[in-house]
Nucleic acid binder design. Structure first.
Length: 108
DNA sequence: CGAATGACCAAGC
DNA sequence: GGCTTGGCCATTC
């Protein structure tokens, strides 16, 4: 386990959170996009690592993988994320995926 | 400092 | 469309 740190250690993590906080309701972004926006095109995995301990004020539910799917395995977190997105108006197709062309954050 | 970790990704079958 | 493989990378231990 890991000690919980309010403002989380590194600058990189904070940038991740700062960016995610800017994602508007009803929109989603991918880990890869976040990584690129931070100047580390191949650090998508690290972004996911950061999300593991994300602060409460971060809309983590708006972060999905490149396929527009919730990356969490079918845990309680998965269901919560899906429910939150649905509440924001984001639709899932049969395969449980989101149409990024449609719900992707326009900034990207 | 070296090895492990993981809410990723693109390419190949 | 689904499964596997190799690579990437900041953070942790």
């Amino acid at each position: 386990m890991k000690l919980q740190n309010p403002v989380t250690s590194s600058n990189f993590f904070r940038r991740v959170y700062a960016l995610v906080r800017q994602v508007p309701r009803g929109r989603v972004v991918t880990y890869g996009q976040i990584a690129r926006a931070l100047g580390a095109p191949r650090a998508a995995r690290t972004v996911g690592w950061a999300m593991r301990d994300c602060p409460a004020n971060v809309p983590w539910q708006r972060v999905v993988n490149a396929r527009g799917e919730i990356s969490l395995r079918p845990t309680s977190g998965y269901h919560e994320q899906r429910a939150r997105l649905k509440e924001e108006g984001v639709r899932f197709n049969r395969a449980g995926r989101i149409d990024l062309k449609k719900y992707g954050w326009k900034k990207f």
